[in-house]
Design a protein around this nucleic acid. Structure first.
Ligand SMILES: [Zn+2]
Ligand SMILES: [Zn+2]
Ligand SMILES: [Zn+2]
Ligand SMILES: [Zn+2]
Lengths: 144, 144
DNA sequence: GAAAATATGAGACACAATATCAGTAAGTCC
DNA sequence: GGACTTACTGATATTGTGTCTCATATTTTC
């Protein structure tokens, strides 16, 4: 196993859930695996993966999302960005200019979640927290 | 001023920002004001406000959003929900079944934001935190 | 009231994403 | 391998949310 633990085998993730490991799915998974650092949009993925229908790309992306190996970030404006998940449970920073995505874990956030659980009427089934930022390279580019 | 402090005058909010207070905008603002408790979708608002074009409803909604008197919540699946803002700065709970929206304030969340500001490279321009819940009425309905 | 600025709305458009469904490819059992 | 069952694929149509256009209408200012 030469792969870093954070970069799980996307293909295996599909197989483990009882999905067939087909050619198109392999191609999508490979393309996602290549985008390790940056986030990407579903459409950019469609453009990148050759010989594969748009519907299949979207469907595979959804499977990977369910399997927890990619994350989906709603953007305040425009298409959501996807990203290969690196950490088990985490939250995100997104640059509102270039879409670069970062992950972080913060125990304080999870503490908030637990304490809110007592105050909120109803059952908490999920939570999300995002920081919208202007990343350093975008900031530098803006000055020029 | 018989209005509750949390329920700001939507019309005044538009006027304060230098926008003309026109008939269509009044109608949209009124309709939004009526939806105090629940969230709503942009399309449902279009259907509700008579004698007003869809484009104008969307435009007015955007103005109210900029003015900070309504909030927009991306849903994990489907159309974003809008809601009349009650608190100055706040976060949301959303029922994933019926879409009911609640607001809450938590100083801990804001403390997280400040502490993350030091750790994150780049300028934080916004943040969001949401709890996805199954509300008590949906839970009760499910048992039946 | 005339002129300038702004707002409106019908309809076209853009875009993301899903639904349809005939055709194809995997897995299964013999 | 061959017959069968089940799952997957992808071209296309459709939906849904939101924006753009631009001719017309309304406000505001003078
Ligand atoms: Zn992530
Ligand atoms: Zn968390
Ligand atoms: Zn709100
Ligand atoms: Zn509910």
């Amino acid at each position: 196993m030469t792969l870093a633990p954070a970069r799980r085998d996307l293909q295996a993730a599909l197989q483990d859930r009882g999905y067939r490991l087909t050619g198109p799915r392999k191609r999508v998974a490979e393309a996602v695996g290549r985008k390790q650092e940056d986030g990407f949009t579903a459409e950019s993925l469609c453009a990148e993966v050759q010989d594969t229908g748009r519907a299949t790309v979207y469907r595979t992306l959804k499977l990977l999302l369910e399997a927890g190996v990619v994350c989906k970030l709603p953007m305040p404006d425009g298409a959501p960005r996807y990203m290969l998940a690196q950490l088990e449970h985490h939250h995100h920073t997104v640059c509102v200019r270039c879409g670069a995505v970062g992950e972080f874990r913060d125990t304080t956030v999870e503490r908030v979640v637990r304490s809110m659980g007592k105050e909120i009427t109803g059952e908490i089934v999920g939570h999300r927290m995002e920081f919208y930022i202007i990343c350093t390279s975008c900031k530098a580019a803006r000055k020029a």
